[in-house]
Nucleic acid binder design. Structure first.
Lengths: 226, 226
DNA sequence: CCCCAATTTGAACACATGTTTGACGTAAGG
DNA sequence: CCTTACGTCAAACATGTGTTCAAATTGGGG
């Protein structure tokens, strides 16, 4: 302690500052000096408390994961007898909330978003443990709406269509705003976005199984990909 | 050799190597020495041909943009009398192709994807010039399917829902694969993905206007965001 | 043949980074 | 009071970075 009581405090400040700066600038662009300055600590404090910049990054990710799960658990606090439509809306809204969290830890899930664009081996496991339970909940909701005729692949694809919309509206928000410069606010706030994604996805799920869509024959692409 | 004729060749090799390495490791993580080594050129060649690492990055982005537009133009080679459904499928397929391009320039659109996660001021303009025309095409298709009763905001949101699905299925593919480890191939190849996104989105657009969905009242979130 | 401009090269520079060191200050125990 | 352990701090270290420079190399023209 330096002193009594203060010992863990700088560690916690370091964790918070690291999460915020890592999420804003990425792992490489963020410097330990910037983090320690934001945390009002010395450069050596990182090595003392965490060992290295890498381990600090890992610790910040685990901390963010724990905080996100604590604030927005997959159950969402809904009554178990809620309709699938309500549960879908609640799931979408909670996901958007987790992705845009700006209250105490503005960076909670943005770290994970950045990880997906530039994955690091150790953290894939963390992402997996964080995303898998929530995704199971979503698939249950989707399966309920699709009905018994849907196979697992269709359920999985539709669930990812829902997640993809949410991630895009939040993560690519600066790009979307630039695409509609005249009326950037047209896209709307979080609740309007949640309503749109839920409405769009609900209509999609209801008409998915009975769709008469058959992909037309187009000129084949040169190389095989994916 | 060094002279005459070869002068532009190293510049082209530099451009190719820069695009590949920048797209794989990001701007900060990529080093000029790695790029010049991949291009079989000297470190000083970057400064000689482009002036700096930043300008090389900008040149690589513009080069990638031009190549992507040349290979997969927004018109998609469809007959002008094609149905909106066919045009939607073709647009989705072309977008997926652009995002997964692995033939000659595996990194064509991945640079843009990385830019969105970690935007740099100068390149936002490039992204804007690249994405805006294609997005106008998509909005026209979406407006056709939605019908005359849809306002601009609804069209914009639905168009972004389509784009978001495509980006998610391609960019977050490693995450999706980890979510379904038992049957990773279940999601399917590019054509299957294009068929799913088109089917999902078509059902959504057809039912969007006549949807009876009303967002249920949930406990409000603490902070206002976005 | 020799000179010239363009291009490439290896080596060095200045700087920022992550990391380490050793001293300093603060409490607790004898 | 002295010792000890722990946390903090400023300063320095080693390394890798982008950048720069002058010499070397190339092919074409007088």
């Amino acid at each position: 302690m330096t002193n009594s009581g203060r010992e863990d405090e700088t560690r916690a400040r370091l964790l918070d500052a690291a999460g915020e700066i890592f999420s804003c600038k990425g792992f490489h662009a963020a410097t330990v000096r910037e983090i320690t300055k934001a945390a009002r600590a010395n450069v050596a404090a990182i090595h003392y408390h965490f060992g290295s910049k890498d381990r600090l990054y890992l610790a910040a990710l685990e901390h963010a994961h724990a905080e996100a799960m604590r604030l927005y658990p997959p159950e969402l606090g809904l009554p178990p007898d809620a309709s699938p439509e309500t549960r879908l809306y609640a799931y979408v809204r909670a996901l958007l909330l987790r992705l845009t969290e700006k209250n105490r830890h503005a960076w909670l899930s943005r770290l994970m978003a950045r990880e997906m664009a530039e994955p690091t081996p150790q953290l894939a496991v963390v992402v997996e443990r964080c995303l898998a339970p929530a995704n199971a909940v979503l698939r249950a909701i989707v399966a309920d709406i699709l009905g018994p005729g849907a196979d697992a692949a269709a359920v999985a694809r539709c669930a990812q269509s829902v997640v993809g919309q949410c991630r895009h509206f939040v993560i690519d928000r600066p790009v979307i705003a630039r695409l509609y410069p005249e009326n950037a606010a047209e896209i709307g706030g979080l609740d309007a976005l949640a309503a749109h994604v839920a409405r769009f996805s609900l209509a999609a799920l209801r008409g998915y199984q009975t769709s008469d869509f058959a992909p037309p024959q187009l000129e084949p692409h040169s190389g095989d990909m994916l």
